[in-house]
Amino acid sequence: MDLKSLYQEILNEHNLNPTHKGVMENPTFTLQGVNPSCGDNIYLQLKIDDNGIISEGSFNGSGCAVSQASVDMMLDDIIGKPKDEALRLASLFMDMIYGKIEDDNALEELDEAASLKNISKMPARVKCAVLGWHTMEEMLKNGKTAGQGSVEHCTTE
């Protein structure tokens, strides 16, 4: 199996059988992310413990295979990590997607999310790939806490 086929298989698996899709009870943060150019719409939920560790994460919503798979991979990467580490991984992911990193060894920390590296060559799909990551960054950087049913809006344009 060539590398391109493997990456496609990883993307399909996360899209068709997402580990983290669902609604969480009592999240610490909830933020809606929207990509108006193609209709991707997610609701990202994170639970953060008293030590600043992301203890749980989920998403709901709809969108293309790239946006859905990317947010699922992101949650694989950030659950169990401190907020600062999640933000660092988001920065690494953004650098990869925007073609600022060529060294595959530098991407090992992204685990399966590194399989989206070639999205940088498909400009129409970049916004899809970064939607979940951008939503998580916005959530954590701005400390947006959500009460039950309260949702903020984050747009990737």
Rank of each mutant, 00 (worst) to 15 (best):
I119V: 15
G39R: 14
D40M: 07
G149C: 06
T28A: 11
D50Q: 10
A146S: 09
H153M: 13
K4Y: 09
L11P: 03
Y7V: 09
C154P: 00
V23C: 04
S91L: 14
P27N: 12
A113R: 04
M94R: 11
T145V: 13
Q148I: 11
S91W: 10
A90M: 15
G52T: 03
G132L: 04
V66N: 01
A90F: 12
G39S: 12
D40L: 08
G22P: 08
C38E: 08
D49P: 01
E56F: 01
I78G: 01
G149T: 04
F29T: 01
H14K: 05
R88Q: 10
K127A: 02
G52Q: 09
M73Y: 03
N51D: 15
L92N: 05
M136Q: 06
L131M: 15
L11M: 15
H20R: 10
Q68R: 05
Y98G: 02
I54L: 09
D76N: 13
L116Q: 02
D49Q: 06
A146N: 05
I48A: 02
V151C: 09
K121E: 09
E102D: 15
I97W: 11
G33L: 08
E138A: 12
T30M: 15
E13W: 05
I10C: 07
S67L: 08
G149P: 02
S115Y: 07
I10H: 02
K83I: 06
H134Q: 10
K144S: 07
A90Y: 08
L92H: 05
N15L: 12
S58L: 04
M122Y: 14
A124H: 10
H153N: 09
A90T: 10
I48R: 02
N41T: 03
L11T: 05
T155Q: 14
L107C: 08
E109P: 02
V23Q: 08
E9G: 00
E112G: 00
N60E: 12
D95C: 08
C154S: 11
T156D: 08
S55A: 12
V66S: 02
N118H: 05
N60I: 00
P82L: 12
L31M: 15
H14P: 00
E137C: 14
T145H: 06
E56T: 00
I78D: 01
G149Y: 04
L89I: 06
R88D: 12
L92Q: 05
K81P: 04
K100W: 07
L116E: 03
T156N: 08
E138R: 09
D103T: 10
A114R: 04
K100Q: 13
M1N: 09
K144W: 08
F93L: 13
I54P: 01
E138T: 11
E152D: 15
E109N: 14
K81Y: 04
R125F: 05
G147P: 03
E108K: 14
A113N: 07
K141P: 00
E108M: 14
Q32I: 10
